[in-house]
């Protein structure tokens, strides 16, 4: 397998990661009362790969 097909094959990982990040950021902006400061969640979502958005959805959304 050469370099370009390899990169194409790995592309979905980045797309899903960016998608998760965008969903989490949109939700954070709309959320009037997140569990903790908004700027902190913003940093976590953008900086921590993959896990960041998931942690925000599970802990930060206050859906319980």
């Amino acid at each position: 397998m050469d370099q370009t097909t390899m990169l194409l094959a790995l592309l979905p990982i980045f797309v899903i990661q960016i998608g998760l990040m965008i969903f989490a950021l949109v939700d954070l902006i709309k959320n009037p009362n997140p569990n903790g400061p908004k700027w902190m969640w913003g940093i976590i979502i953008v900086v921590v790969n993959i896990i960041g958005p998931i942690v925000y959805f599970v802990v930060g959304r206050r859906n319980y």
Partner: peptide, 18 residues
């Protein structure tokens, strides 16, 4: 509205690809 329908599949797909 709480985006569960989007993010839960994303998590499983990522786990499956990794």
């Amino acid at each position: 509205r709480n985006y569960k329908i989007f993010w839960i599949p994303c998590v499983f797909i990522l786990l499956g690809i990794t």
